[in-house]
């Protein structure tokens, strides 16, 4: 039988992550302070070593490689919490970067990445401008993570050229346009050695569900508190039903993530189908929930005085990290139908 419910043991690590984030990195940390641009990297980097010491970046990595020695289930549950608390996207760099370094035999790097003292940025390659990319969250990083269908690697940021700071729609991100080195990344792990690209899509999907649940909870809380026409707006079906749809979408997306993570854990024959479906549905849900959350908040929803816009922008970023929706749809139709 398929047991699609995490055990209390599997949930333990994610609960530790969640309680740390709630205490140390509440969503309110993103509120602007005066005219200061709240660069999330700067805020979250202060906590990075602490998170590293708690093992958050090595949950799914084997113990003999320096990790905590839990599995992909625990790691995925933790990423749902990273999403919920809008943790800097470089968390993907740290977790997947450590895995890349470990598989490539670079034990010297693994330790620092896991400890949170060697930060790893993210590269978003630009297909319409070959040889270039956006470097996200990476100005202070010695390494940047990149992946495609064939594998995952770490690029030495000292070898990036034409670095030009750009503004991003997401003001919490540090963002630069860069030229990639002509040669292949010095650290590269092919997908047949370890399907890190697929794991990346799965972890992005889990973060996206965390975002979807975050906006669901934000909307529900607001709809109970905000009154118009002498009633909480959540008593009106127009708002209540939108919240019900947010909850339903998030539940479906999370169930599919669990199915995909189980397929990944057991390496079932339909693992590609399941992970692809998971990221596709998680992305769609995160963006639609973020849009609905802005609508539910009324005029305040499109101001920077609430966090609603951050959830939208982060959802769009995670769509573009790894395999985006358009390619996911292509891939999903290429797959054989999953066995019943």
């Amino acid at each position: 039988m398929i047991h699609l419910q995490p055990t209390p043991d599997q949930e333990e690590a994610a609960e530790a992550v969640a309680s740390f984030l709630q205490a140390e990195m509440p969503i309110e940390r993103l509120r602007p302070r005066g005219r200061e641009l709240p660069l999330i990297r700067h805020r979250d980097q202060a906590k990075w070593a602490e998170m590293g010491a708690l093992g958050f970046f090595g949950l799914g990595l084997e113990e003999d490689l320096g990790g905590v020695g839990l599995g992909v289930v625990e790691e995925t549950l933790a990423f749902r919490e990273f999403g919920r608390y809008l943790v800097a996207p470089r968390v993907l760099g740290s977790v997947l970067g450590a895995r890349v370094a470990a598989r490539a035999g670079r034990a010297d790097l693994v330790e620092g990445i896991l400890a949170g003292t060697v930060p790893v940025g993210l590269l978003l390659t630009l297909e319409d401008e070959p040889g270039t990319a956006y470097l996200v969250d990476g100005a202070d990083a010695e390494w940047a993570l990149t992946w495609n269908a064939g594998g995952a690697g770490l690029v030495d940021t000292a070898k990036l050229s034409d670095i030009e700071a750009r503004e991003s729609i997401d003001s919490t991100l540090e963002f630069a346009h860069v030229r990639l080195p002509a040669s292949e990344p010095e650290i590269w792990v092919t997908a047949d050695v370890d399907p890190i690209p697929r794991r990346g899509d799965l972890l992005c999907a889990a973060m996206l569900v965390g975002l979807s649940e975050g906006t669901r909870d934000d909307s529900v809380e607001f709809a109970k508190m905000r009154k118009q026409f002498n009633q909480p707006i959540g008593s009106f079906q127009a708002v209540k039903h939108r919240c019900a749809d947010m909850a339903t979408r998030a539940a479906a997306a999370w169930a599919q993530i669990l199915f995909a993570v189980l397929a990944e854990k057991e390496r079932t024959e339909d693992v590609v189908f399941q992970v692809t479906a998971a990221k596709l549905i998680a992305t769609d849900t995160a963006i639609r929930n973020a849009q609905a959350n802005i609508q539910n908040h009324g005029a305040t929803g499109f101001t920077s005085e609430v966090e609603a816009h951050h959830f939208l922008k982060r959802s769009h970023l995670l769509d573009q990290v790894g395999t985006n929706q358009r390619r996911l749809r292509d891939r999903l139709l290429e797959q054989p139908a999953p066995p019943a």
Partner: peptide
């Protein structure tokens, strides 16, 4: 194709929801 791919993902999620409910 866009709609069919989306439906494939959605029906996968329905199956997952059912398994989760049974679990």
């Amino acid at each position: 194709m866009y709609r069919l791919a989306t439906l494939r993902a959605e029906f996968a999620a329905i199956r997952a929801l059912t398994y989760q409910s049974i679990s």
